[in-house]
């Protein structure tokens, strides 16, 4: 059963999860699954997986999966409340840190922190690309598209929308 009664557990559930989400919203996907599928039975595992796939396939932050879950549980108000619960407190923290960073700009310990996180940031981007590629790798063609797109984006300054369009066309022609 879904509706207004579920709004409160939805909000408190995502509030709790958001504080664990060090490393990004998708780091807590297993906790979301536990909340949505196992604890409250708001949807089954397949419906959960489909919403996650949609949030991945659509443009925008992958954390939109939380909005989709909220929508399913309590409509538009559910979408907005779940997103606010997931993003509100951590946004305040990010803002507080950004303010601190401006205030102490140039301080040695802050320089160390900023520089020290850069390699991790890039390593995580590369890994998210690889995981996305392996999820799409149904046969040799998607692998070739990923490899070609990597080269295109690395070596040129043209808009990556070109490779997305080519990927869509090749997919439509050869992948079904």
């Amino acid at each position: 059963m879904t509706g207004e009664d579920d709004l409160w557990p939805l909000v408190t559930g995502f509030l709790g999860i958001s504080l664990l989400s060090v490393g990004g919203g998708i780091a807590v996907l297993p906790e979301m699954h536990r909340l949505v599928v196992e604890s409250h039975g708001w949807m089954d595992g397949l419906a959960f997986a489909k919403r996650y796939a949609l949030a991945q396939a659509a443009p925008g932050p992958n954390i939109m999966v939380v909005g989709l879950i909220g929508w399913h549980v309590a409509g538009a108000i559910g979408m907005v409340s779940a997103m606010l619960a997931m993003c509100g407190p951590t946004s305040l923290l990010a803002y507080a840190f950004a303010r601190l960073r401006r205030r102490v700009a140039g301080a040695r310990w802050m320089r160390v922190f900023e520089r020290g996180m850069v390699p991790i940031a890039i390593g995580l981007i590369a890994a998210s690309g690889l995981l996305l590629a392996s999820g799409a790798a149904e046969g040799w063609l998607p692998v070739a598209i990923s490899a070609g797109s990597t080269l295109f984006v690395w070596r040129t300054r043209r808009s990556p929308l070109w490779v997305l369009a080519v990927g869509a066309v090749l997919g439509a022609l050869f992948l079904h």
Partner: peptide
Amino acid sequence: PLVRAILTGIAAAAAGMVMGTAVKMV
């Protein structure tokens, strides 16, 4: 099938976009 095929093609290209960005940053 057609929608899935298009989404897979886009996902494969987007994955390359993300990996290419990492290489470029390095």
